Amino acid sequence: MTDHERLFGTAPEGLWAAPGRVNLIGEHTDYNEGYVMPLALPQTIKALVSRRPDRLLRLHSGHEPDAEPVTVDLAALAPGAVPGWAAYPAGVAWALAEAGHEIGGANISFDSDVPTGAGLSSSAALEVVTALALNDLGGLGLPPETLARLSQRAENDFVGVPSGILDQMASACCVAGHVLHLDTRDLGRRHVPFAMAVEGLRLLVVDTRVKHAHADGAYAKRRAECEAGAAALGVPFLRDVDHDDLDAALTRLTDPVVRRRVRHVVTEDRRVERVIALLDAGRARDIGPLLTEGHASLRDDFEVSCPELDLVVAAAVDAGALGARMTGGGFGGSAIVLVDEDAAEATGTAVREEFAARGLAAPRVFEAIPSAGAQRIPM
């Protein structure tokens, strides 16, 4: 008997998976309708699902193996009605219903190897795997970008986190061996080959295993500061500020904090353009300095880094890495490091030694392998 059968008394009808992600470049640009370049990780959240004859969702997390499943009444779904982790899949069911899609009850057992709290979008993976499973079982026929939009709405309006679309689109739409060049304004996208092995490169993820308390509310504050900057400049979004006009635009901003936020977003959009040009030219090695430049902007202008993330970047670059930067929302979580293949192990060791020298817990280091987006998996 499987765990799903033990929990719910019925065999699962299918298995679905959705990946976590890292963002190569383009941080805090998605809610400014700018450009991003994420890649999906091999680490996924998996969902075994069986249909129910009633209007209940029963949800179980492999992270809480001894806990009873959370029961959610589809007829009573409303923002704020479901606490904790179950709000994310419940929010997806709510968003589907709000969009006019009829779904029935389901038993869902989740299991995950996406590190939580590491800035690798475990919440988006949880939303997307739920959306895909309910879409397939209900025969809704919704395309991946629609599932991503609905998942984002679940996070924004049901859970109450004002995230952009980057994480959900990465989890739903990425292609193995590629990074996703995404225009978050219209969801125009292109899958760009990212064959690092051809150039003898590795992209490492360093999970600092820390999350600072002041991250609470900081994301929403940064978004509000960006909106204030756009309003002061008379544009709908900071995406609409031309990089060539940035210096002139900054002189029109009287608030020094807003000025720094604007400078990060506009220069970060330009960094995405520069990275895509280098990848198109087969020069992946040359994107390293742009990663490090992006980290400095996130640290100094957007002020979302933290000492542990700064330590990863400094230690990696000092050890000979081609470039490094924090990835994700910030205030902890993970950084990415671009290294020559033969220097990967030594770079990871150097970072761990720096953490140990400062009395910090050892970070988790693993390779980011560009992987496939959400999919149904044969059982």
Score class of each variant (00 low, 15 high):
54 D>H: 09
56 L>W: 12
56 L>G: 09
57 L>W: 03
58 R>P: 01
58 R>D: 01
59 L>Y: 08
59 L>P: 10
59 L>D: 13
59 L>K: 07
59 L>V: 12
63 H>P: 03
65 P>Y: 06
65 P>V: 07
66 D>P: 01
66 D>V: 01
67 A>W: 00
70 V>T: 10
71 T>E: 15
72 V>R: 10
72 V>S: 10
73 D>C: 11
73 D>K: 09
73 D>F: 11
74 L>G: 10
76 A>H: 12
77 L>V: 15
77 L>G: 15
78 A>G: 04
78 A>Q: 10
80 G>Q: 02
81 A>K: 13
82 V>N: 07
83 P>R: 14
83 P>I: 14
83 P>L: 13
84 G>Q: 13
87 A>C: 14
87 A>W: 11
88 Y>L: 06
88 Y>G: 07
90 A>D: 14
90 A>P: 13
95 A>M: 11
97 A>P: 11
98 E>Q: 14
98 E>H: 04
99 A>L: 04
100 G>C: 10
102 E>F: 04
102 E>M: 05
103 I>R: 11
105 G>N: 11
105 G>S: 13
106 A>L: 05
106 A>T: 04
106 A>G: 04
108 I>L: 09
109 S>E: 10
110 F>V: 11
110 F>D: 12
111 D>M: 13
112 S>H: 12
113 D>L: 07
114 V>P: 04
114 V>A: 09
116 T>K: 13
117 G>V: 05
119 G>R: 06
120 L>H: 06
120 L>Q: 05
121 S>W: 07
124 A>R: 03
125 A>K: 07
125 A>H: 08
132 L>F: 05
133 A>R: 02
134 L>S: 05
138 G>Y: 00
139 G>C: 02
139 G>A: 02
140 L>R: 05
140 L>D: 05
141 G>M: 01
141 G>L: 00
142 L>I: 01
143 P>A: 10
144 P>I: 01
144 P>K: 03
145 E>S: 04
